[in-house]
Amino acid sequence: MRLEKLPVSRIRYAGIVDFDGLYRMMHQWFLDRSYYLEEQSWKYKIPTPLGKHMEIEWDAWKKVTEYALYRIHVYFYLMDVKEIEVVRDGKKEKRLKLKMNLEISSQVEMEYQNRVTTPLQKVLDDVLYKTLLRRDMDIFWTDHLWYIVFKLHTEIKKFLGMETTADPYRAVW
């Protein structure tokens, strides 16, 4: 299996968040795009006087072709989490006051089925990877996945109500 790892993008936010809503929005985002989503870990640490600490890891993947697969890894690190009640439109709602560090990393996996076993197959796979599919990989797969991740990035920023939500690259892919 060969990996093309893409750079990590990070969002750090401190404030009041509808974390349930964010969680559901991101979950639905992956399902709408036909990704298989697995929650790899959910860590809940003993609360301190400052609040709770939580770590959540998601792994989402999608087959592009028989040779290439997209994998997106999301890591939530929540610190000083406290439950609070806010009044919105006359209704009381539960929210979390927290500091959140969200990292989204992604990679394109090639020959993910590990079907190459014999030396001849390895030579042919090398030719495929280094020459015939090089252009597809550089121009199509990595670029496509990169901008898919940024669409998710923008949706998260919009949900959190951050200032920097403009996305002139939304029409790219």
Binding site: R10, R12, Y13, Y147, F150
Partner: peptide, 21 residues
């Protein structure tokens, strides 16, 4: 800023985005 980079043919990369009140 993002529009300028897009018009000039740069690929987008946002390493860090931090906001707090």
């Amino acid at each position: 800023i993002q529009e300028w980079f897009r018009e000039k043919g740069y690929d987008k990369r946002e390493d860090k985005n931090y906001e707090t009140v």
